[in-house]
Each structure stands twice: as C-alpha cells, then as structure tokens.
C-alpha cells in the first residue's frame, strides 16, 4: 500500500491537502505511480499490506493508513484510493479470484467508513478492471455490449465493479477497463505477450503461445494507461460513476505483433503455438474508447519496450 502526499509547499494550499492510497504496483500500478510522481510534486510512504489477510483486517489497515495520512498532511481535503492490485489472471480459478474479491471488499468497506465519518473530505475510488475479462469472446465491442465474463477472472472484475458501485452517492468512482495491457519486460510481475516476445526474442528462446497465430487482441501500453489514470486521479472528481474503456480500438493478430517485435529487434523471434481455449478474438470499436484516452500506435509502444529492455540489458552487461 503506497501513500503519496504533495510536497510541503503544495500541501500548504487547500488543494494540496490531498493523498492517494494505491494498492498494487504491478505492470500498470507502477506506471500509475510514476505518472503521479511526475504530475504532482510529492513524497510517498509505503505501508505493509499482506495479501492473505481477511477483509475486516484489511479494512482496519486502510483506516490506519488514512489516519497516518491525516497525521502527515493535516486535515485532508481529498483522498483517492487506487486499486491496481491483483494476483489473479485469465487462468485463475475461483479460489484465487475469491481471495482477491475479499481483499477488495475490505478496501471498499474502509472507504465507506471513511466517507461516512463526516470529515468533509472528498473521496474517490479508482478501480482497474479488465475489458478483456469482461468482454471475452466478443468482437467489435460497442457501448451497447453487455459484459459477459467467460471465466473466473472476468467474473471477479464484474464483482469488483458491483462492489464499488455500492459506494455511489457519497464517493466518486472511476472504473477503468483496459484491453490487453503490455508493459516493460520484467521477471517479477505477470508478463503479457509483447514483453515475453521481446525478452525471449533477444535471448533466442522459443516463446510458446497458448492460442492461435490469428488470435486478435486490442493492445494498449501500460504507460499510456498509467498516465490516463494518474490524470484522472489528480483531476477534481464528483460523486458520479464513470466507466472508461481504455482501448486502442485497433485489433492486432498475434502474427502481426510477432512481426512488429521482429522488426523492432531486427531479428527472428521463435514461436511455438499450443492450441488453447482463449484463442477467440476480443476487439473494440472506436465508439467505446474513452474520449480522453490516447492510445499510441502499437509499433511505437513495442519499440519503446524493446529499446528500454535493450538499454537495461546492456547496462547490466
């Protein structure tokens, strides 16, 4: 759990008495955090946040964290809680997703208690959901399409959205539904197709793809998603519910991604294909894309991932 406060000179103003409480510093979480840091002169405090604790224990943790925030920044004018945490993925089972839902409900309860405590502080929750999980198997998803999760992960995201909707009225709620997100090459967090291809391509390893070479997905870079969410976090929000689809509205086949990675690396990338259930395309129409979301060209994003990893690799060498 990371608390981020404006630096002293900014905090001296009413607008500056603002704190963000962020859960999860994975691929997207890191990008949100770094964007927040670059957009707002701030300091941060990391607090312990074990994953396996009960919802009630988590509620207490969050309440304590908010108390810490108030001690450090004084009476707060605004609190933004960002949920970018999660260990569940597309292949997770119900046991895994249930634990994550429980953890999120603990946070929602803490937010409810804080909002009801009569501090006069504006509270906002920013939930990172998943367009891929919610619309799996649907093509050219438009505003009229209803989420229809096909597996536990999508059902978890829908349940999280339902849980956060219960706060509507007293709390500003932003739900973000990004499509397939790719970020920097990392050995720690769960990797998507793009960083895996970049890493294995440079190491000369074979990448085994579960799906099909023609499987279509909509890819957005974690950097752009992080920047968008950070801007929303820092902007004044009301007490409405806003759902933003952070999609590129431009499908790419795995074959096309492979080709772009090969061009970026200037070498052949070895790929083995293992047929899998999740080969169905998931694509989005332009009309559903959040109007203020700028999705960059996938070629640019992949070039950046590749050059960043090449830079890090050469530094390490």
């Amino acid at each position: 759990m990371r608390l981020r406060f404006p630096t002293a000179d900014v905090a001296a103003t009413d607008e500056g008495r603002f704190v963000t409480v962020q859960f999860g510093l994975g691929t997207i979480g890191r990008c949100i955090d770094s964007s927040l840091a670059s957009l707002m002169p701030s300091t941060m405090v990391d607090l312990d946040d074990e994953w396996g604790i009960s919802a009630a224990a988590r509620t207490n943790r969050v309440s304590e964290a908010l108390a810490v925030a108030q001690r450090k920044a004084g009476p707060l004018s605004r609190v933004s809680v960002i949920w970018s945490a999660g260990v569940a993925g597309f292949d997770s089972d119900y046991a895994e997703t249930a634990a994550e839902l429980d953890a999120f409900r603990g946070v929602v309860e803490a937010v409810r208690q804080f909002a009801d405590s009569g501090t006069g502080c504006a509270v906002a929750v920013h939930l990172l959901s998943s367009a891929g999980g919610l619309y799996e198997g649907q093509t050219r998803v438009e505003p009229g399409n209803a989420p229809d999760p096909q597996r536990p992960y999508g059902q978890l995201k829908l349940a999280q959205e339902a849980a956060v909707r219960e706060l509507v009225g007293g709390v500003g709620i932003d739900v973000y539904r990004p499509s397939s997100v790719f970020g920097s090459v990392s050995t720690k967090s769960r990797q998507g197709l793009v960083p895996t291809l970049v890493r294995n391509g440079l190491l000369g390893r074979v990448t085994t793809l579960s799906g099909a070479i023609g499987t279509q997905r909509d890819y957005v870079s974690a950097r752009m998603v992080g920047r968008h969410i950070a801007r929303r976090v820092l902007s004044e929000s009301g007490v409405d519910l806003t759902i933003s689809h952070l999609v590129a509205a431009r499908p790419h086949t795995v074959g096309e991604v492979l080709r772009i990675v090969e061009r970026a690396l200037r070498r052949r990338v070895l790929l083995a294909v293992a047929p899998a259930e999740n080969a169905a395309p998931i694509t989005f129409s332009e009309s559903i894309r959040a109007a203020d979301f700028a999705a960059e060209d996938l070629r640019v994003g992949i070039e950046q991932v590749a050059s960043e990893y090449l830079g890090r690799s050469s530094l390490a060498a």
């Binding site: 070479i213 023609g214 279509q216 086949t253 074959g255 096309e256 080709r259």
Partner: peptide
C-alpha cells in the same frame, strides 16, 4: 479474415 490479416501484417 485470418489469411487477409496475416498477409496484411507482413
């Protein structure tokens, strides 16, 4: 579709 997209991609 799959053939056309593959050809277009390369």
């Amino acid at each position: 579709g799959s053939v056309a997209r593959a050809a277009a991609a390369v």
